[in-house]
Design a protein around this nucleic acid. Structure first.
Length: 474
RNA sequence: GGUGGAUUCGUCUAACGGUUAGGACACAAGAUUCUCAAUCUUGCAAUAGGGGUUCGAUUCCCCUAUCCACUACCA
């Protein structure tokens, strides 16, 4: 499910819940050619994972079923015929190829060839078994307008509307027809959808009017754009990266983080709060906060929002859910995962950030000795060699390799050498990690690596510096 | 081409005629910390352009520009 679709579903859900209304799932599968096996299951699982629980739907039923359009085929036919009788629709026997010629300049789609066939002609064609569609008979003049709850008053000249197909030649309705019939029959009061439907809305309104049905309220939402590699902006799509909810979840973004972020695309709360739970969103959501201009999907801000949610997570939950992403099953790190997880929780934006952050623990990376040179900690190659050998002396005699014990002995060593902890641990951490920045400090890493590996890396550090000094000496 | 819509820091947005145009992300600096992150402080940065209306326009009107959507027997 595309992020754009999910955002629309989210707003519909938030609006329904905030008004103590019902959120209804209807499967619109009237294009049999585009049927994709399993896609309905993706919708169910996405809604479930995202926490958007529907009150009526194909899987749980309800008073206005069936909720799958292909199972309602007969209903649409009946209503289409009603419109024909009322003169608001007509049979059309044109073949698709008859109107293949592009609409002329300023023209409006179908040329209305069959709009004024006599009843006799229609009957003759039907009796001959000729395939047909049923088209909407759009009034030739007048205007259609409505007050959109987001976009305000919108008026369109009927003369600019085309006689769209309502019932296809295979007997299935078009989306344009089915949505009107179903929304009426299912007693939908508020329709929330993307602004790409703004242009076709007058045609739907004319259908409501032709049936004599009460029009629902309309809430059109701004679209979500993405930024292209060249800096330009266009409607969010696959080329912008992972844009399906599933893909983002697989990357280790939290469902609640994704939901929180997309709620902020096209809506803003009255307060300056930015981090929300679903319940808070329901409580604070209102249509007045929805705005009209499109928003650009920003992975950086998604990352920040998700990182906030990760940091807020109960540590026990983080330990459990992040573990599979760490890929440390069977390694020496597995028993120490709880400790490692505590270091990671505030340092990642999504679970998939974890492997690269801990790779240095599993395998010592190659590094340049220039890392030992650090002005703020007054660290040089010479001082590093000295500190590292002191550290090795101190640690090799250490029996108790617990965090507390390590901290105590390193602090003691610092005092002994007349150093603050920082200058002492800088070279130690470099020798242990080979990295400028690590999750956790030198003492955390000593603990995680264990005694043998720690001492090995410290010795290797001295060796590396000495070797380079020798080469420099030549 | 036609129709409809949109236009505030790079990005998400606040300000429904009167503010030094606010907040957040990102970026930068500082505090703090055994590095980094987290946290806190500070800085940088915007009303597309032009006309009106008004004592006063981000806000209302018009024009221009740019962008988007629709213009399917797709949804």
């Amino acid at each position: 499910m595309h992020i754009g679709n999910l955002r629309t579903a989210l707003f519909a859900y938030l609006f329904a819940k905030s008004q103590h209304g019902k959120f209804i799932l209807r499967i619109e599968d009237t294009d049999q050619g585009r049927y994709v096996e399993g896609s309905v299951d993706v919708i169910y699982s996405t809604l479930k994972t995202a926490g958007l629980v529907h009150d009526e739907g194909p899987d749980i039923g309800g008073d206005y079923g069936p909720y799958t359009q292909s199972e309602r085929k007969g209903i649409y036919r009946q209503y289409a015929l009603e419109l024909v009788e009322k003169g608001a629709a007509y049979y059309c026997f044109c073949q698709k190829s008859d109107k293949e010629q592009e609409p002329q300049e300023g023209g409006i789609g179908y040329d209305r060839h069959c709009r004024n066939l006599s009843p006799e002609e229609v009957k003759a064609q039907l009796d001959a078994g000729k395939p047909y569609v049923i088209r909407q008979r759009i009034p030739l003049d007048g205007t259609t307008s409505w007050n959109d709850l987001v976009y305000g008053e919108i008026s369109v000249e009927n003369a600019t509307l085309d006689d769209q197909v309502l019932l296809k030649s295979d007997g299935m309705p078009t989306y344009n027809f089915a949505n009107v019939v179903d929304d009426h029959l299912m007693r939908i009061t508020h329709i929330i959808r993307g602004s790409e439907y703004l242009s076709s809305n007058p045609k739907y309104l004319l259908l409501y009017d032709a049936f004599g049905w009460e029009r629902p309220q309309y809430i059109h939402l701004p679209i979500i754009n993405g930024r292209n590699a060249d800096g330009s902006i266009s409607k969010l799509s696959k080329r912008h990266g992972a844009v399906s909810f599933q893909a983002l979840v697989e990357q280790g973004y939290l469902p609640q983080g994704i939901i929180n972020y997309i709620a902020l695309l096209g809506w803003s709360p009255k307060s300056e709060q930015e981090i929300f739970t679903m319940d808070e969103l329901i409580e604070q959501f209102s249509i007045e906060g929805v705005h009209k201009s499109p928003a650009v999907f920003d992975y950086q801000k998604l990352g920040w929002v998700d990182g906030q949610h990760i940091t807020m997570l109960d540590p026990a939950v983080f330990v459990r859910d992040a573990f599979p992403y760490a890929q440390i099953s069977g390694t020496f790190l597995e028993p120490k995962w709880t400790k490692l997880a505590s270091l990671l929780q505030s340092r990642i934006t999504k679970y998939s950030d974890i492997p690269e952050k801990i790779a240095f623990l599993l395998q010592m990376p190659e590094y340049d000795t220039s890392l030992y040179i650090h002005k703020k900690n007054k660290s040089t190659l010479e001082s590093s060699v000295s500190i590292l050998s002191h550290a090795i002396d101190c640690l090799s005699g250490l029996e108790d390799w617990s965090e507390d014990s390590l901290m105590a002995s390193m602090t003691a060593l610092a005092t002994e050498l007349g150093l603050k902890l920082g200058p002492l641990t800088w070279p130690v951490r470099i020798a242990l990690s080979g990295l400028m920045a690590t999750p956790g400090g030198a003492i955390d890493i000593l603990y995680l690596l264990g005694k043998d590996e720690s001492l090995k890396r410290l010795n290797d550090g001295i060796r590396l510096i000495s070797k380079e000094n020798l080469e420099d000496g030549k």
